[in-house]
Simulated scan of single mutants.
Amino acid sequence: MQTENTPPKLFDQVRERIRVKHYSIRTEKQYVQWIKRFILYHGKRYPQEMGVAEVEAFLTHLAVEGKVSASTQNQALSSLLFLYKEVLLIDLPWLNNVVRAKQPQRLPNVLTRTEVRAVLVRMSGVYGLMANLLYGTGMRLMECVRLRVKDVDFERGEILIRDGKGTKDRVTMLPESLKASLQAHLQQRRALFDDDTRLGKASVYLSDALERKYPNASTEWAWQYIFPSGSFSLDPRSGVERRHHIDEKLLQRAIKKAVQAGITKLAMPHTLRHSFATHLLDSGYDIRTVQELLGHKDVQTTMIYTHVLNKGGRGVRSPLDM
């Protein structure tokens, strides 16, 4: 039993530090999982007793025996870096010298306009609306799932994406062709919100900072998720029962089903974002504009879509066809 003088357990310290730094619940779960695996792999030894040899042995085990991808291996390393630097406050020079796995440089998978239409025409309802938004705005999957009512401006024809990758805000367009569908969806969403209000369960998740700044915002219409879950659930951090946003896995499955029925390529929700960028560049839009719409920090990241456009001999016509 923990008393006032007893220091919190290691994983409680990890969670507390993650929340102080305002990391997402997903990051919290992933970091705790990797730290647990690291400790168990080395026979439940205390992290303070281990060093570079143990970290490298664990990462090697993941790559060789676990056959994890480079991104997964780097995620495990990031978790251990967080443990030592942020939680244990141990400044170990060797941490900065641990080599991250090199991720393969691959061109993004992109659908043609015809293929996009073949996928979207096979989707309807909420999932169809969300899939159209992914392609029509260039949003990431979780950016779409987490949209709130106040983030859509129908008069200006734009969507404000808050806390995107890198905790950055940005603005993208609201496609004219989706305005009527989205407004109709919001009418149904308002009816659900009114029902939740009568039940006293209209509260929605807000970060600690926002809850302190706007104490009544969690039960206001403007802050509600546009695409809500079909049921109530317990917040894993606060324990409050409320309606969260829709589970992204449901949209992923719906898109996968439409892809399998419509085209032969492999595609996922993020493929629609890749297609959005490539089709804009193909239509002659400036790469800096596309960079801003995608929320890329570096234009070099956006430049990869120019390579997709040049695929097939870099746009050069074969002499056999001349």
Rank of each mutant, 00 (worst) to 15 (best):
S233I: 05
E248A: 14
T301K: 01
S283V: 09
L293V: 11
K265W: 13
L251N: 08
P269W: 04
R317W: 10
A267F: 11
F276W: 12
I304T: 04
Q260W: 13
L250Q: 15
D298P: 01
V316I: 13
P236T: 02
Y285W: 11
G313K: 03
A267G: 11
R288Y: 04
H296A: 03
H296G: 01
L320R: 15
Y285L: 15
R237F: 04
K311C: 04
R314G: 01
R273M: 06
V240E: 09
L309I: 03
R243P: 07
D298N: 14
H296S: 03
E248P: 10
R273A: 00
L272C: 09
S238A: 01
I287D: 01
K257G: 07
D247F: 10
Q252M: 13
I304W: 05
T278N: 06
V299Y: 00
S275A: 15
G284W: 08
K311L: 12
L280M: 05
L272A: 14
I263E: 02
H244I: 02
S238P: 01
E241C: 06
Q260T: 14
V290W: 04
T306P: 01
L281M: 00
E241T: 10
G295I: 02
P236G: 03
L272P: 10
R253K: 15
H244L: 05
V308M: 03
L281A: 04
E248L: 04
G312C: 02
L294K: 07
E292V: 09
Y305M: 05
D282F: 06
V316R: 11
H279C: 12
I246Y: 08
P319W: 06
S231Q: 11
I246C: 12
L293R: 08
A277I: 09
H307Q: 09
P269S: 05
T271G: 13
M303G: 02
S275Q: 10
T289S: 09
Q300S: 15
T271F: 14
Q300R: 08
K257M: 13
H270R: 13
R273C: 06
H274D: 11
H274L: 13
T289A: 05
A277L: 03
R314W: 06
A261H: 13
F276G: 10
G315P: 00
G284H: 07
S229G: 13
K257P: 05
D298A: 01
R242Q: 09
V316E: 12
S231L: 05
L250E: 13
L251R: 14
L281F: 00
L293M: 14
Q252T: 11
S318V: 05
H307A: 05
R314P: 01
Y285G: 04
S238T: 10
V290T: 11
V290P: 02
S275T: 14
G230M: 04
A258N: 12
P236H: 01
R243E: 04
K265P: 14
Y285C: 14
